[in-house]
Design a protein around this nucleic acid. Structure first.
Lengths: 211, 211
DNA sequence: TCGCTGTTTTTTGTATACAAAAGTATCAAT
DNA sequence: ATTGATACTTTTGTATACAAAAAACAGCGA
């Protein structure tokens, strides 16, 4: 699939990056005219971009009022993790049952940098690796739907913003356990390992909710 | 949430209904000008509507070429069912663990008409009931993401078009078994029952694929 | 007949224009 | 000072206008 230099898409990418990097405040209104001027385009391609963002739960459109950056509430994060747990299990199972050694290497590659450096891990880089790892499993699963459910991956990014992360000391070796399970071809095991991984994160969120 | 008389939404609803009822041929190009004229609107609100439809996998946009009604291929249906199986399990588990008797009655209500009529079941009505049943479980689960994943429910509708349905004699009592499992509050059982239900449909699709 | 090339037509993507709704400010009256 | 009504400004939603790309077509040559 060839990406086209379509203005709507460029605007979408730009706004998405800005929202996910917190350059827009959650709850903030996105003024069409202003953004159009900033990006040097008219309001027309913005409409499509906003619609894309709304479908990914990144903004909310209130008709005749405007577009607002979605606030991330813990309940929704919890819900997303619940979905992610189920869907990643499907993905991991499929991938375990049908993969190449190159794919395994790719997955391992995300985390090997953090294995060697036995001191001070760059947390931002680790988060990025984590994001790519989970996204990549979905894509490589071969299930055409899984690779395109942006809702799930976006929520993960926003979770990072909230600081809802487990210590690297716990997750790093879990990631390798998941990869190993996939590599052995044991679908059930791979599904269970990744579900366990997600459940632990979900437990953290539940703690936040009960406070 | 109040629905607004927004042209884009009206257009979206209209086109969605037309696609799902096969009034547009799969693969057919949707000419913007023509559709705008037919619906008596300009092309501007169409853009948003098309974007919504694309997010639900009902149309496909090829930049600079046009919008095409998505062809339903068996592989994608299979993938959707795989996702549905996982997600419905989550929904059924939640609902089992937290529901009211009114919700149970609502679910039963979808199918009681077909219990009493011990002769000739109206297949179209049964399909509609099936669609609503599965959708309703997602909504009532209380998981804010599940209720809004239109991809999954759309695919189900398109599956009907392909005639990929199991006989009523099998599915009718399965539906009641699922409801009963939910009613007893046994989350694991409810999840397993609905997963089994989905798996059987998935097996049918796999048969089609292997041909 | 087929295929190539240049031209015309259609269709898309984007900008601009305009009407209606929402938001804001002003000012009078209590 | 606070409230309420009215005029003014901003902002949204939609229609129209225009440029550029794609598709359709016609004419020419092998």
């Amino acid at each position: 699939m060839i990406k086209y230099a379509d203005l709507s898409n460029q605007v979408y990418e730009q706004l998405k990056a800005m929202i996910l990097s917190n350059q827009y405040e959650p709850g903030q209104k996105l003024l069409q005219e202003k953004i159009a001027a900033q990006l040097g385009v008219s309001r027309t391609p913005l409409h499509k971009a906003f619609q894309m963002l709304e479908n990914e739960y990144l903004v909310e459109s209130i008709p005749r009022r405007g577009i607002y950056v979605k606030k991330v509430d813990y309940n929704q994060i919890y819900d997303a993790f619940e979905c992610r747990e189920a869907l990643e299990s499907v993905a991991a199972r499929r991938l375990a049952e049908n993969h190449t050694s190159e794919q395994i290497d790719l997955l391992k590659g995300f985390f090997t940098p953090f294995m060697n450096a036995n001191i001070d891990i760059n947390v931002d880089k680790y988060r990025k690796a984590d994001e790519l790892f989970h996204k990549q499993i979905m894509i490589m699963s071969g299930n055409s739907i899984l690779g395109r459910l942006e809702v799930i991956s976006n929520i993960l990014v926003r979770t990072y913003q909230k600081g809802l992360v487990r210590p690297v000391s716990e997750t790093l070796h879990e990631h390798f356990e998941i990869i190993d399970a996939i590599a052995t071809g044991n679908g059930d095991l791979a599904a269970e390992m990744i579900a366990k991984h997600s459940r632990a994160a979900r437990a953290n969120i539940q703690q936040m909710l009960s406070k």
